[in-house]
Computed example of a mutant assay.
Amino acid sequence: MTGRTIRVSDVLGPVTALGPGRRLGVWVQGCPLACPGCMSRHTWDPRGGREVEVERLAEAWRRALADGYDGLTVSGGEPLEQPAALADLLAAADRERRAAGRTDADLLVYTGREDDEIAGSPRARAALDLADAVITGRYRAGEPTRLVWRGSANQRLVPRTPLGRLRYEPHLRREADRPELQVRVTDTEVRVIGVPRPGELGSLERELASRGVTFRENTWRP
């Protein structure tokens, strides 16, 4: 390892709404794409979040594997804004799963970059070299979808390895039959994890308000 750091917004587990099974979620910080309607505006500012050593994330992944987690999901923010750090993170994750005898644990990356943008960028291709599957494409609020783990109909789920094909090909056209969101409530904040359908965040706000929980600010409105 090179001692590289990666700027992240959050690290949470278990995550069950961004890929199959129980997963460690890493949200990188910084996104220039600024898709209208994005629920994670707090991850846009490249100066936000915090710098974390890739090795620290590898340690978290090692513990997750020992706890029986099924995979790692890297989202954001835009992971390909930090391609070298992303490559290091996936290399560390691959090293840890091999050392633990957990080569069944997959690595999934979300990116707003389109397939042709990735194909035309050697740095992006290298960064994603060890990803078992990638979800690609800008979020388009006007193109809703019920396809699992995708926010809009243009986004593509692309298996890239034998493990990725085994784990993700059954879900390429699978539609969710119910909302697939995780909600975590603390004394100071409500965290929503997953890919909401149109109107779900507003419904959540109204439901929480009926229980006396109101927001001073949220991450899905300017």
Rank of each mutant, 00 (worst) to 15 (best):
A93D: 07
Q82C: 04
P179E: 08
A176S: 13
A91V: 10
G3T: 04
A60Y: 14
V26G: 01
L128V: 08
T5L: 02
W61M: 01
R41A: 08
E205S: 13
L12I: 15
A131K: 09
P20G: 05
P162R: 01
G112P: 10
C35A: 08
P144S: 05
E207S: 13
G19W: 11
V190Y: 10
V74F: 10
Q182H: 04
R178E: 13
G202E: 15
T43K: 00
A105M: 09
R165Y: 12
E217C: 09
P144N: 05
R4K: 02
R206P: 08
Q29W: 07
G77Y: 04
G71L: 02
R47L: 07
G21C: 06
R191L: 15
G25I: 08
W61E: 00
D129P: 05
T145D: 06
A100F: 09
L108P: 11
P20F: 01
R138H: 12
A119S: 12
L107R: 03
R174Y: 07
L89Q: 05
Y168H: 04
G120P: 15
R167A: 14
G21P: 13
V28I: 09
V26E: 04
E96Q: 04
L57K: 04
R113Y: 15
T188Y: 09
D115Y: 06
E55I: 11
A153C: 08
G137Q: 04
R41V: 06
G21S: 05
R113K: 15
W220I: 00
R102T: 01
W149Q: 00
D70E: 13
L172T: 01
R23D: 00
L128C: 07
D129Y: 09
R56S: 15
R113N: 13
R47I: 00
R221I: 00
S121T: 11
R23V: 00
A66L: 14
Q29H: 04
P46T: 03
A93K: 04
L80D: 01
Y168S: 00
T43D: 02
E78S: 06
A127S: 06
S40I: 15
R165F: 12
T214H: 10
R62A: 15
D116K: 09
T214W: 09
L80S: 00
A58T: 14
E96F: 03
V54T: 04
P162H: 03
R98L: 11
N154E: 14
D187H: 13
E189Q: 13
P170I: 00
G202Y: 12
L157R: 01
P79H: 04
L130T: 01
Q182T: 14
R4I: 09
R174I: 05
A92Y: 06
T5F: 00
A126F: 07
D10S: 15
R165A: 14
G77H: 02
L72R: 08
A133C: 12
N154L: 15
R63K: 12
W61Y: 11
A126W: 05
A176W: 07
Y110D: 10
E200N: 08
A17L: 03
E143K: 12
P196W: 12
D177L: 15
R140G: 01
I193M: 06
D94V: 07
A153T: 06
R216M: 07
E59D: 15
I118Y: 02
V148Q: 09
P83L: 03
G194A: 01
D132P: 02
H42T: 14
P14I: 05
Q182K: 01
V185D: 05
R178S: 14
T2A: 13
T2R: 06
W149Y: 06
W27R: 12
G68S: 09
